[in-house]
Design a protein around this nucleic acid. Structure first.
Length: 310
DNA sequence: TTCCAGGGGTAGA
DNA sequence: TCTACCCATGGA
């Protein structure tokens, strides 16, 4: 049996999750038209890969269908369990967003639509290591550079699936720089992989962190190359939304949306204060506004490019 | 060639 | 804690 389904929470929306941010565009993810399905090569044993594709054919609230390809034999129960765990992590099927959605309904338009649309689940990678690497690849580079760096990393290591920490560590900083073109980030990437591969850093502890966000943030901040922006992004991927990573997207968006008439850009503190009332849900409130603007941009460009009806 | 991106690091106030 | 400043590097 190479196909099974997973019951999601009633408000789960597959497309909204897949297209929640840029992750679906990064290798080795393959996204089907308009986020209908998401595929990736999954490692089920040291040397064994299968192709996994997930979708939600029945739409919001319907079952998530998981199809496993690239193998003639049926997959074993443990393999299926591994893949289901990955799918749950990536789509955040176990995350409770009811408090955020309650706040969204109370806030009125346009936030109420975040609740009805099942917004708030940011797509993750199968592993936290992969998420950390991808966050590092977003620092101080254009989005096109991020995509290229991640694609080259996959190409020069595993070639198909996202590499393990051991594979990245074995490559070393010099080749990550020369072949991966990770620039000055190459040293950070190699150090991260080595710390995990050697057992000095246990990412499993971060997934189930019992302490405060502050403590977890300090742990992440200890990674070379992870400054305030990257720490906040990782926290959001770990389900902690009380901080907003200040980057060029944040600055330009908040200036445009909340300070349209400002002669000079307000301070970072003033920009962040826009979302203070959202407390532990600041990041999702901010990202919902960004997401709405992005969706309207897409809608506008597609209606402009659509030929006029005769 | 210049400019800048989904910044990081550090010093000094 | 905040600001100013320098640094890095590939791609448009």
């Amino acid at each position: 049996m190479n196909r099974f389904s997973v019951a999601p929470p009633p408000d789960f929306d597959f497309r909204a999750t897949v297209q929640s941010h840029g992750w679906c565009q990064l290798a080795p993810f393959v996204v089907q038209e308009n986020g209908r399905a998401l595929g990736w090569p999954a490692r089920i044993a040291k040397k064994r890969l299968v192709r996994v594709e997930v979708s939600q054919p029945a739409g919001r609230g319907g079952p998530v269908e998981v199809e496993i390809g690239g193998t003639h034999a049926g997959v074993s129960k443990p393999t299926r369990a591994t893949i289901e765990a990955s799918v749950r992590r990536m789509l955040r099927l176990d995350e409770d967003l009811s408090e955020f959605h309650t706040l969204c309904r109370a806030a009125g338009p346009p936030f109420d639509r975040a609740a009805t649309g099942g917004f708030g689940r940011l797509l993750r990678s199968p592993t936290l290591f992969e998420d950390l690497v991808k966050v590092l690849a977003t620092t101080n580079t254009a989005w096109s550079g991020t995509r290229a760096m991640v694609a080259r990393l996959v190409a020069i290591t595993d070639g198909v699936a996202f590499p393990t920490p051991a594979e990245v560590a074995a490559l070393g900083a010099a080749r990550l720089r020369s072949e991966g073109r990770w620039g000055y980030r190459a040293g950070y990437l190699a150090a991260l992989a080595e710390r995990i591969d050697s057992g000095a850093l246990d990412l499993a502890a971060w997934e189930e962190w019992p302490g405060s966000t502050e403590e977890l943030a300090n742990e992440i901040r200890d990674l070379p190359g992870f400054g305030p922006y990257a720490v906040s992004q990782v926290l959001a991927l770990l389900g902690r939304y009380d901080r907003i990573g200040v980057d060029s997207v944040f600055r330009s968006f908040v200036l445009r949306r909340h300070f349209p008439r400002a002669r000079k850009a307000p301070s970072t503190r003033r920009m962040l204060a826009v979302y203070n009332d959202w407390g532990s849900w600041r990041f999702l409130a901010y990202w919902w506004e960004v997401w709405l603007e992005y969706q309207s941009t897409i809608a506008r460009s597609s209606s402009e490019s659509r030929p006029a009806k005769k």
